[in-house]
Amino acid sequence: MSVGDYIRGSQIWKSIFRHPAPVDRRNRVVVMLTNFFLHLHPVSVKQQGIALSYTWCMGGITFFLFLVETITGVLLMFYYRPTLEFAFNDILALRDVTTLGIMREIHRWSAHSMVITVWLHMYRVFLTGSYKPPREFNWVIGVLLLVLTLLLSFTGYLLPWDQLAIWAITVGSNMARATPFLGYEGPGAQLLNIGGYDLITNGSDARFLLLGSRFVGEATLNRFYILHCVAIPLVVSLLIAIHFWRVRKDGGISQPL
């Protein structure tokens, strides 16, 4: 008996993989049903539905990039400290001295790629008319995921705490100042006052909520760090789960109806 057969015959192996290797038709079906990671897929798919020139693979790539972001992001979190004192220097050290500092490069380029692949996924879904019934609501979830992807990228942009970071966030968040009713330079904000006291000031408006401060400062760094590393990824994970589940429930991957 070879070592391989011995391992595959052991109780440990059999407790992990309930079935023989997927080398024949029966076990290729069974593996899709019994493996947690594979069970996202159906057992069989239409040949044209998975043709690369038809499906472009962009949704799958986006999900893969999300996983890359999670893994590299967690590694970066071991190293990076989100305070004014350390943030920039930690990034500098990642670039110059830290082993595997390339994680930051991979994280950043994957982030840019993810924005693009989300667009392309949406492009393909639109151009094949795949949002049409019965998939209307999954398209809506997809739009939410698009927004959250942009927000993930936007909040992450601040963390290196260099000139590029704070000014891009300053320019971006200045828009919130002009939110109708909720920004202190927005139309209608003046109407919200009680007995002559303005409710909406630069210390209480939408921009302040976003930045945690009147300007992009330490409070903003902390706020964006939590949003970037915890809050938004949690919501995104939930929505991805629903998105995938609904692909299966709403008739499977795109196909001519």
Partner: peptide, 23 residues
């Protein structure tokens, strides 16, 4: 339609999971 020609069902393993792995 192009998408309707040669549109047999194939098993996800190996036809889809291998493309995903390569990708």
């Amino acid at each position: 339609l192009f998408e309707q020609e040669n549109n047999e069902k194939v098993l996800t393993w190996p036809d889809l999971v291998y493309s995903e792995l390569i990708c």
